[in-house]
Design a protein around this nucleic acid. Structure first.
Lengths: 242, 242
DNA sequence: CGCCGCCTCCCCATTTCTGGGGAGGGGGAA
DNA sequence: TTCCCCCTCCCCAGAAATGGGGAGGCGGCG
């Protein structure tokens, strides 16, 4: 299919993602997109350290299950490599030199995963991290023409898939927050960059006793159990920026 | 200019961004792009609390200087709002209700900033955060047609500007980010949600002494001065998710 | 095989943080 | 004006965190 004929259909997928309200809709969008580009697989999934899983795609469910069971999230060079990058990456450019990585690759191939892949890291608020991956079976030349041609589309789709997924996970949106006073913000900020209470008090030119009042009131407003908790909450709610 | 005539020129801008090696090249790309879309201003800039500045755009340098002098980074509803979002946002949809926000708005207008704006948050590895903003002077209807029409392009450009900027600032990304071990991640995460050391140790079913080793090694890896600092850094670098 | 990182446990003493209490001045809002 | 929040200062004692040290077992990588 030529570029121009494809555009309206791509627009349609984006529109569907923008109004998606259930995971099934995202799933059907990704299947549709996979067919549109004529590749073997397309996957969007959340990457979080605590093992929470969320995502959709066209991989064989058996492979997905195995991936989780084996803890491949901590081995997969795609995940590890993308975690430190901003721009998309071709699987070939990743580090497959470790033993565990090669074993993983072999296992993936045995489960029918294509020999070519292109993954786009995506990041949202509060350290949210996800991957959008396209995978296929073909030779290197065909694959690089494909990625050169479609890279921009894929970046855009990565964005829209993540947007749709974030919309389905309202647990990520912060709850009602009592605003901190300016002094409280300064206090939390300085604590977040490693100052001790004494140093913060000194920096703000106030007594440490006064400082404690700020910490306590901030802790109260943030519903935090201790200073570290208060700083963490203030950060994750965007009340302080570090 | 029609859509189809513009496409080759947009491709050209992307190509220039991809090979940019100096800030001036990014700057000229953003000016070119501004002219191409016929808007008043276009700006790309990092957002980091410690006052480090990095960015480029077409705002009046006087305004940029004033913005920094006045510490507007901590007031600007665009920055504050985008920090908690993933998707682009129209300035009108932000919270301008506080007094400081209104004062800021007035000051911005006095410095020639347009009444309309559209900002796209962008995130990179280790909690890097930047904004790509388009601003213009026109009525609401004209602005919403503009953003509806060009949103996808702008998202893509936000991505490419950030990619180019990250390439120029390699010192920013790796920042000796030693990965935390699984236990260290668990430790930092539990501390971030308010657990005391004793509680964390209990939760992980290890002795508190062992726990201290994790905290100290995590602190060492993160280059942190104390526990609160370590948790803050781990959060801002996305090594833990709370 | 040796090294290195990870996980686990224990000792010491010192510093820092936390949780109560109270008190006064200033400014904005009702 | 009155009320409430913000800012500032002080007391005390107990709980928690920190900064050093050492030690052993396990597993992966070269």
């Amino acid at each position: 299919m030529g570029f121009l004929e494809k555009v309206p259909q791509l627009d349609d997928v984006i529109a569907r993602l923008e109004r998606a309200e259930r995971l099934e809709e995202i799933q059907s969008a990704i299947e549709w997109l996979r067919d549109l580009y004529g590749v073997d697989d397309m996957v969007y999934h959340w990457v979080s350290s605590n093992g929470e899983q969320y995502g959709c795609g066209t991989y064989d469910p058996k492979w997905v299950e195995r991936y989780l069971d084996m803890g491949y999230l901590r081995i997969d060079p795609v995940v590890l490599g993308c975690y430190q990058r901003f721009h998309p990456v071709d699987w070939k450019r990743l580090d497959w030199s470790t033993k565990s990585a090669r074993a993983f690759l072999k296992d993936a191939a045995a489960h029918g995963i294509g020999n070519q892949g292109y993954s786009i890291p995506i990041r949202g608020p509060n350290g949210q991290f996800a991957l959008f991956t396209v995978s296929h079976t073909c030779d290197d030349d065909a694959w690089s023409s494909f990625t050169d041609l479609n890279r921009r589309d894929l970046i855009l789709f990565a964005h829209y898939f993540n947007q749709a997924a974030l919309k389905l996970e309202p647990g990520r949106t912060p709850e009602a927050t009592q605003p901190l006073s300016p002094r409280e913000v300064e206090t939390m900020t300085l604590l977040a960059v490693g100052y001790s209470r004494a140093q913060v008090a000194d920096t703000l030119s106030i007594s440490e006793h006064t400082l404690r009042v700020y910490i306590e009131s901030a802790r109260f407003k943030l519903g935090a159990l201790n200073t570290t908790h208060a700083v963490a909450r203030a950060m994750s709610r965007g009340q302080i920026v570090v």
